[in-house]
Every structure is written in C-alpha cells, then in structure tokens.
Design a binder for these strands. Sequence first.
DNA 1: GTTGTATGAATGAATG
DNA 2: CATTCATTCATACAAC
Lengths: 196, 196
Amino acid sequence: MDDRNQDSYGGPNLQRSTLEPLRTRWTPKPEQILILESIFNSGMVNPPKDETVRIRKLLEQFGSVGDANVFYWFQNRRSRSRRRQRQLQASLMADPRAAGAAQHAGAAATSSSSNSPGGGFFACASSPSAAASSSSSDFVIDDSADDLFSISRQMGFVEATQTPPFTCSSGVSHLHIQPGQSVHGFGVSDTIWPFP
Amino acid sequence: MDDRNQDSYGGPNLQRSTLEPLRTRWTPKPEQILILESIFNSGMVNPPKDETVRIRKLLEQFGSVGDANVFYWFQNRRSRSRRRQRQLQASLMADPRAAGAAQHAGAAATSSSSNSPGGGFFACASSPSAAASSSSSDFVIDDSADDLFSISRQMGFVEATQTPPFTCSSGVSHLHIQPGQSVHGFGVSDTIWPFP
DNA sequence: GTTGTATGAATGAATG
DNA sequence: CATTCATTCATACAAC
C-alpha cells in the first residue's frame, strides 16, 4: 500500500463494531510504538521527510497511519523528552536526594529491564521492500537520545494478531538517513518586511 | 469595555495577574480568525507592512494583538496552505482512490474548485454604515468551502465584553461582525499535516 | 460515570 | 519561505 492516506480510522481496539467512519485520532498500535520508539532511541530523533515517509510505510504494515502522524509523533516525542529532561534537571537541582524519584513516570520498568539510558534499548530497522539504499550517511546522534521510559501504556502486551514480516535487529540499527536535501536556492525577501 | 491593548511591536503579551491562565502567546479570538481568514482568502495572502498594521488595528477591536502576531499569522497561513496543497497533491497522485481519506478533514478536496489563494471563500469589504443593518443572521460561511479552509476550533464562544461593531473593507464581499455575537464554532479542524 | 493522565493534533513563535 | 520549538487544545484510556 503506497497510499499515505492519513485516515486514522482504525484504532487498535476502536474498530470493535465494524464501524469505520468514526474519525478518531490515531492510536498507534503497540508494534508501531515499538518501531517508532526504537528509531527514536537509535538516535534518529528528527527524521527528515524522506525518512518519515519510509517510517510511515513501515508502520503501515500494522495499521493505517499517515505521514503527519509520524511527523507529529516525533515532534511530540522530542518536545516531551526535552521537557522531562528539564523537569528532571530542575528537580535534581532543587533536591539532589530526589534523584531516584523520577517524577511519576508511567513506566514501571525503570531499572530492571531497560538498558543504557542513552542509546540502545532496542533498535530495529527493516524495509519490507526497496533495499536499494547505497550510501550510508551516518546520522548524527545529537547528544542525548534522552528519555526512554515512557513506553508504557499501549505496549504492555504486544499481541501481534498477525504480524507481517517485521524484523528487528537488536543492537544498533542500520538506519541511514539522507542528509542531502532541499533545493532551496534563493532567500529573497523582497516584498516582505524585515520587521519593525 | 475591554480595551486592554498592548502595544504592537515585538511583544504580544497580555496576561492578567491572577485570573487568567497566563497565556503567553496570542490566542486569536474567533472574530479575529474570521477577519484574518477572510482577508487571506480574499487574495491578500501576504500583506505589506502598512496593510498589516491596518489589519492589526482592525483586529484590535476584538482583543489585544500585535503587528507581529498578524505577520506571523499570515506567514504560517501561507506555509500551511502550501504544504496542505502539496500533501493533497501527493495523496491524489499516490492513490486516487484514497481521495476521501483525509484524517478528519472534509472530503471535499477532490473536486477542488478554488485552490488558489485568491479563490473566494468569504471576503470582506463594505462601508461601515451600509452594513450596519441586516442583522438577522450573524454570518454565513459556505461550508462548501473547499480544501483551503481551517477555521480553528478556537471559535467557540466569544466573551467579548463590549467592542464596537466591525466592518471590514478590504476584499470583495462584506463581513460584519458584532463583538457580542457568538460565533458558532464548528469543530472542524483541518488536519492534514504539516509537511509533505 | 467521573476524574486523571498520557498523548495526538494544532498552531503561535521563532530561527535560518 | 522552510523547519523547528514551545505551548496549548482535544481526546483515548485507565483508575476510581
């Protein structure tokens, strides 16, 4: 399916009664969250357009999703991570003893199951088709692949009803991004006013 | 009377001391959105500075707003419209059958009658005195307005204490908004996405 | 059924 | 004009 219709009609459990025209907001499926999460944690916190499309296609194997959803997801993810980080910092600054009390995070797997808080965790990368990639430009791991415990709710049970070919390579992913972009040529601002 | 205008340039800030939700950023009132929307749809998608100032003054009748806000609004508007258009094009190109599948936006995009910014939607232009009558109905917005609409959901209730009637003269038709009138908010939020 | 929280979606405000 | 960040609104879902 190469259509990227952004209909988010099919929620995970929302389609309980063969009623589809219920336009709700996109509710990512556990598998989708897993994929997104791994991509994010593998360092690609801000995928460019083309990557976003690719990711969307990947996710589409598990349910309807649009590019916009993917875009929003990453944006929210970044924003949220940053905010949490800041709050945590503030908390620590206020009271160093409160180190162990990470807010109230919905995640319960703080220490036992998670890995190094800055990298791996789990990463996956797989293209169902189109492996015509060649040049592997390394992505830039900004600095902190921050927050990782947040994947609580919907991922509790990955009940893959019938998971299409979806492979996950543990370790560091092979996600390759394409830095080259934008045909932006001229930055003329003739009729626009600079600003008062 | 609610004439707490703040100055235009630079800092659109307005917050009540202890009663307001401490809004830092400008939240356009429904009437303001209407005005802006009509100006935009009347063809003026990129107003020069002087026009911007005029628009701001117009908007100020319904709440504090600065030139910068107006400027940003138009800028975002243009950007968003273009992106939406491109996304739509892409969608149609990818899979014409998926035409009706927009997240929860109207499905009236396929026909497309006016995709140009100059396409009529509702515009405003009239002399202050002439439009003072005919107050049977608040206003009429063609719900059949095609793709390029996105009246935010913020148009729900208007608490305008008391502001002078307003008549816009800028475009083609006329639009008369009375501050006390509540604008019927249709929760139609355009939701195509932010980037192609 | 109500409340609280997590989070998708939207948009104002920048920056390049 | 393209992209990104920050804040806010709306809603799905869980807990009660």
